[in-house]
């Protein structure tokens, strides 16, 4: 390889760098979310089952009444790489939900208890109803929300992200948002029906603090035994748990993907090594007797 190769290589890297500068979220104000530690970080990162189960509890009790999970089925909760509920638990849980079915022989739609194969029912029958019930804003569905939210990393940080594997903009943002409710700065007027959040782009968010009921003003948990597994109930912990659950909901095959990826990578390295040696072998003939190649 000559100097051209090197310069082209550098150019390619720089090119990739600039090209990916696309900021992924609104340009409006909103503090950069602090970085959290996640069990699913990196090529070998996996979900923490206990955390996903806690997160599901938080989702169910604090978010589910407005935010659907429409792409998920109850059965997903017991599938490998997820929260690891048992089939029995999932059946019981599903039966607590009512889903619409039918029509029956009389031509009527009816409600029945959900089965594991059913998808999570939507909290609102349609967007108009959701809007009417929520001050004109439709609460977004949570199926892929952890992948649908991001924030700008800036040049050249996002270049390093390729190597460092940082891709948790979504989870970091969601956790920040859940812990970012505070009193507005002096002199800033927040209109009725809006709330101040230091991480929300534009700062004024329609959603009221969803964890409000769980903590008092001093940040003390109203129910210290909210978690049955002994995990301390803090605002950050609760936010992180529900975020981890949402990340799993958005990317339920992540563990399978990474496992496969490790195997593929190892195999490619072996193959590349073999081909490199073979290539050297074959091309060395030219050094021996250049004109005999044909």
């Amino acid at each position: 390889m000559n100097s051209l190769s090197r310069s082209l290589g550098v150019a390619a890297i720089v090119a990739t760098g600039f090209a990916f500068a696309a900021p992924a979220f609104a340009a409006g104000a909103g503090e950069k979310p602090p970085r959290q530690t996640w069990s699913f970080y990196g090529p070998f990162g996996t979900y923490d089952k206990a955390q996903l189960q806690r997160g599901f509890k938080v989702y169910r009790e604090n978010c589910a009444s407005c935010h659907g999970l429409s792409k998920l089925s109850f059965r997903n909760l017991s599938e490998p790489g997820g929260p690891g509920f048992t089939d029995g638990q999932v059946r019981t849980l599903a039966a607590e939900y009512k889903v619409k079915d039918g029509p029956n022989e009389a031509g009527d739609m009816f409600e029945r208890p959900a089965r594991p194969s059913d998808r999570f029912p939507k909290p609102f029958a349609n967007d108009e109803l959701a809007k009417a019930a929520n001050n004109g804003a439709v609460p977004p569905d949570f199926s892929v929300i952890a992948k649908a939210r991001s924030y700008e990393r800036g040049f050249p940080t996002y270049l390093f992200d390729i190597v460092t594997q940082y891709q948790q903009q979504g989870p970091d943002y969601i956790t920040a948002l859940l812990t970012g409710y505070e009193a507005p700065p002096k002199g800033v007027k927040v209109e009725d029906g809006l709330h101040w959040n230091k991480y929300f782009p534009g700062n004024k968010i329609a959603m009221s603090n969803p964890l409000l009921a769980m903590f008092d003003d001093a940040g003390k948990a109203s129910d210290p035994n909210y978690y049955t597994d002994g995990t301390p109930v803090t605002k950050l912990q609760v936010a992180k748990d529900v975020t981890a659950f949402l990340m799993w909901a958005a990317e339920p095959k992540m563990e399978e993907r990474k496992r496969t990826g490790v195997k593929v990578m190892l195999w490619l390295i072996v193959l590349a090594g073999l081909l490199f040696m073979l290539k050297k072998r074959i091309w060395s003939r030219l050094d021996a007797e250049p004109s005999k190649a044909h």
């Binding site: 072998r281 074959i282 060395s284 003939r285 021996a288 007797e289 005999k292 190649a293």
Partner: peptide, 8 residues
């Protein structure tokens, strides 16, 4: 081809 390689 191969004879060359064999030699080398």
């Amino acid at each position: 081809h191969s004879t060359n390689a064999m030699q080398s």
